[in-house]
Amino acid sequence: MKLLIIEDEQGLRDNVTQFLQKEQYTVEAAADFHSAMEKIALYDYDCILLDVGLPDGNGLNLLRALKSKQKRDNVIIISAKDSLDDKLEGLNLGADDYLTKPFHLAELNARIKAVLRRKALDGGNVVKLNNMELDFNGRTLCIDGVTIHLNRKEFDILAFFVVNKNRLIYKSALAEHVWGDHMDNADNFDFIYSQIKNLRKKLKDHGANLEIQAIYGVGYKLTV
C-alpha cells in the first residue's frame, strides 16, 4: 500500500510518516502544494492524507485536480478547521473522510484502514485476525465461524483494537473514537474499563485467540 501525506508542518509529517511506516505502508511526503501536484500527476496512491491549509495553495484545489484526472486515489482531508461547511465541501469534492487536528494517530490509522478496506474490490469489508472475523458492513463478529452478538459500542471498541493491533491505545483515543469527542477526561475514563472487561469476557468465552491487555492504567493493547 502506498500512501502520500501532504502536510506543510514538518513535525506532523514526520509523526504520521513514522507511525504509518510501522504499519508496513510505503509512505511518501510532500511539504507544499507544488510538490504535491507533481507527485499526484506522476504516481498513483492508495490513500492521500491532505492538509487543506497549505501555505501556497488551497488543498481542496489538489482534490479538484485529482478528481478531474479521474484518479481513484482515496483522500482523507486533515484540517485544523473543525468546520462543517469545509467538511461538506471536501466530501462533496470526493474526499473519503475528514479528520480534524489534533487527532490521535490510532484514530488516523483506523480511518486509513477503513478507507482502504472500502476500496478493496473483493470487498466484503471483513477483517480476519487469527480465528476471528470482523465484518464491518454487518458489524458482526465471528469466532471460529460462530456469530457473537456485540452491541454498537463493543463492536466499535473491538474494531478499533483490531485495526490498531499490537499498539498501545491511549484511553482518551479509544473514548473519542467510540463515544465522540465530547467524552473527555473530566469524566475520568474509568468507565471504559468495565466495557473492556465485558468485551474480554465475551472474547474469552468464545475462545478468541487474542488478548486485550491493560497497560498501567494508561491504555490498552490488543496482542495477537
Partner: peptide, 15 residues
C-alpha cells in the same frame, strides 16, 4: 491546533 496535534502525536509515538 497544529502544534497541539504534533505534540500529542510525538508523545504517542514515544509512549
Amino acid at each position: 491546533q497544529t502544534p497541539l496535534a504534533i505534540a500529542i502525536n510525538k508523545l504517542e509515538l514515544l509512549l
